[in-house]
């Protein structure tokens, strides 16, 4: 990237003790552009508290997936710092990235697919497989350990993908529209499932979605990309009580929050129409 050399890159993954104990992810002054294009992010600041479930909602083409790829360390920012809780400088990233497609390896069983992150981290194979086996029942995957991905339904495959990210990452998980390819009924059951699993593990989750209901149902906070390039994210605190179920979407408070969120998004869509697609 030509842009990388122009400005000094100051990406580092600081020690945990240098962060406030409550921070799960801190992004400061993030700037990124694809070569020869307008910047997607310009001086973006973002902070996610530890143990929070935060969703990002934005119109398509705003660069949500690019943001995730930056956070996951797959792209290098032009400038800015990204600090994930629990990260140690010079060591591998401790972010559990869950891509949109399940990306399960067809040559590995459920057990070995889920264990890949541990395996790459140097955990002995037997130990990695044992830890996966322990987790399967609570994720609703009991008895599937010897199955191959093509033998599973779309929802089950996403569960395996989630487990893989859960085991690979430390405190922070990035979920990139994981349920967008599922049919409506399966999606609802997967949302319920994610709520239950999250209640148990309480990882810090950053979740991308197009689905406003999904964002509100799952999150403590919804972030809305308010401009292009994204310089800041508008925040909406979702103060619905937990534990939640799909019934929560019928709540009056839910409807109120949804109206507010639609309002925020509406301004953006009308704003974005004038700009480049």
């Amino acid at each position: 990237m030509a842009g990388v050399n122009r400005q000094q890159v100051t990406v580092e993954r600081a020690r945990e003790e240098s962060l406030p104990a409550s921070a799960g992810l801190t992004v400061q002054g993030l700037t990124y552009r694809f070569e020869g294009e307008e910047p997607l992010f310009d001086g973006l600041d973002l902070e996610v508290l530890k143990g929070q479930f935060v969703s990002i909602v934005a119109a398509s083409g705003m660069g949500k997936t690019t943001l995730f790829r930056l956070l996951a360390g797959l792209l290098q920012p032009e400038s800015g710092t990204i600090t994930a809780a629990g990260a140690v400088p010079g060591q591998r990233s401790t972010i559990g990235y869950m891509p949109q497609r399940d990306c399960l390896m067809p040559w590995r069983t459920v057990q070995d697919n889920a264990a890949i992150g541990l395996e790459l981290a140097g955990v002995p194979k037997r130990e990695a497989r044992r830890r996966v086996l322990e987790m399967l029942p609570e994720l609703g995957l009991a008895g599937t350990e010897a199955k191959y991905p093509h033998e599973l339904s779309g929802g089950m495959r996403q569960r395996v993908s989630f487990l893989r990210s859960l085991l690979a990452g430390g405190e922070l998980m990035l979920l990139d529209e994981p349920f967008s390819a599922l049919d409506a009924m399966t999606r609802i059951s997967m949302q319920q499932w994610l709520l239950e699993v999250w209640e148990v593990h309480r990882k810090t989750i950053l979740f991308i979605t197009h689905d406003i209901d999904e964002a509100l149902l799952l999150s403590d906070q919804v972030l809305v990309a308010a401009s292009r390039p994204i310089t800041q994210l508008e925040s909406l605190v979702v103060d619905l009580p937990r534990p939640r179920t799909y019934e929560t979407t019928l709540d009056e408070r839910f409807a109120y929050l949804k109206r507010r969120l639609l309002g925020q998004l509406g301004r953006i869509t009308s704003h974005a129409e004038g700009g480049p697609a």
Binding site: R69, A72, G73, L74, R92, S93, I95, Y97, P99, R101, C103, M105, I116, G117, E119, L120, A121, A168
Partner: peptide, 20 residues
Amino acid sequence: EIGELLRSMGAGKTQLFLKW
């Protein structure tokens, strides 16, 4: 995408070659 995912989990060149 599988390659990138493994890379995000810290896979090096040799691991990518052998496991992907």
